[in-house]
Design a protein around this nucleic acid. Sequence first.
DNA 1: TAATACATTATATTAATTCTAAACTGTTGA
DNA 2: TCAACAGTTTAGAATTAATATAATGTATTA
Lengths: 142, 142
Amino acid sequence: MAYADQYIDKLRKSGLRPTKQRIKICEVLFDAEKTFHFTIKELVKIIENQANIKVSLATVYNTVHAFMKKGYLKEIPLNASQSYYDTNVTHHHHFFDEEENKLIDIHQDDVDEVNIKRTIPGKKIKSVEVIAKIVSDNQSQK
Amino acid sequence: MAYADQYIDKLRKSGLRPTKQRIKICEVLFDAEKTFHFTIKELVKIIENQANIKVSLATVYNTVHAFMKKGYLKEIPLNASQSYYDTNVTHHHHFFDEEENKLIDIHQDDVDEVNIKRTIPGKKIKSVEVIAKIVSDNQSQK
DNA sequence: TAATACATTATATTAATTCTAAACTGTTGA
DNA sequence: TCAACAGTTTAGAATTAATATAATGTATTA
Ligand SMILES: [Mn+2]
Ligand SMILES: [Mn+2]
Ligand SMILES: [Zn+2]
Ligand SMILES: [Zn+2]
């Protein structure tokens, strides 16, 4: 609860009322040591485990969408049937481990600037994301 | 119907029985001048329009999955609520037009090799895909 | 052509997400 | 301070992509 005030400020500045549900979700998402990736289902589970309050599924969806709109969360394009979200909102890329269904960050510095030698008339590039799918390296089978 | 024989061969070689539904779907997907991207919903609509036969939704799903397994189609990772498929199965990248919800191919030659300076122990990279989101360029507002 | 394995279909089911509308709460200004 | 209001939460319903089911139909093979 130590960081609650900071989240109250953050929410107020965004024009979002600091309700106890939103503060709790902030704690779960932004208190963490490291940024992380999550699905809605996973987020609900984390809240259930570490929260003293109950937050409805609808509120979790509402809040995640509100935070995305404010730029506090990013949605990660994956061909899954569910959305993945990222608390790391800096520009970066991803490995996607197809066996464990887990995203792993690749810092921008670890990928040479992606140079696209093609343009679409009347359009500009808003973002460029690289997704590298990875699987177990079983070349060790001599 | 001219290419039907070719598809019959293709299907037979894949161990798929050449049914009239599958041949029709082949025609829709592979007769086209150019490769293209589609959702299941769109594919169903195309079939409805140009086919003399009815193909059930279940068969469309089954067939698309069978073709993916055989490498005749690729699934494109997008943060949409539905899957996009690609009849271009060569290695290439995409623009995604967020305003028109359309994918545009970027040939491999038009993107410098993506060099990822990071590895995950025990894992190897299976594929690397770039998605560049594009929006209208309204800088012309002087 | 009969037997069989494979395929199609209508329909039911699942599951992520969104919607609804009633109850609740944070904010504001008198 | 507190009533009024706008914004928020909630349970549950609705929506929708995708998958499963199981009965019927068809391509293949001998
Ligand atoms: Mn969304
Ligand atoms: Mn699929
Ligand atoms: Zn990330
Ligand atoms: Zn493509």
